[in-house]
């Protein structure tokens, strides 16, 4: 078991075109660090210079926006699913 991460199209250039990748349990902070370890360069698209998640990146744990959970400190455990989604909108 591990944590399943859905990778959006714009970031798949870092993941050898994989649409899902596996990471170890922890928090969103550790997830971002592990992604960077596995796929060097991806970090720049996810976080700004101060290490905060970029405004236009939405992260969901099991379908819930992490801003309604504990933000970047939201825990993720075995079997969880994490979606990384660039901001889009309709009307």
């Amino acid at each position: 078991m591990a944590v399943n991460v859905l990778v959006p199209t714009p970031l798949r250039k870092f993941t050898n075109n994989q649409d899902t990748v596996l990471v170890a349990p922890g928090t969103i902070v550790s997830l971002v660090a592990e992604l960077e370890q596995q796929f060097p360069g991806i970090n720049k698209s996810l976080t700004d210079d101060s290490g905060e998640l970029r405004r236009f990146i939405n992260v969901y744990v099991n379908e819930e926006d992490i801003r309604f959970l504990e933000g970047k400190n939201t825990p993720i455990k075995d079997g969880d699913s994490v979606s990384i989604i660039p901001a889009i909108a309709g009307g």
């Binding site: 959006p8 199209t9 649409d19 939405n58 969901y60 379908e63 926006d65 309709g90 009307g91």
Partner: peptide
Amino acid sequence: NYDEVNRLCAEAGDKYGWAFVNI
């Protein structure tokens, strides 16, 4: 709610070859 619809569509937009007007 709409925000959940939006997230699903972003995921679907990556999977299917459709022209999503707002993606």
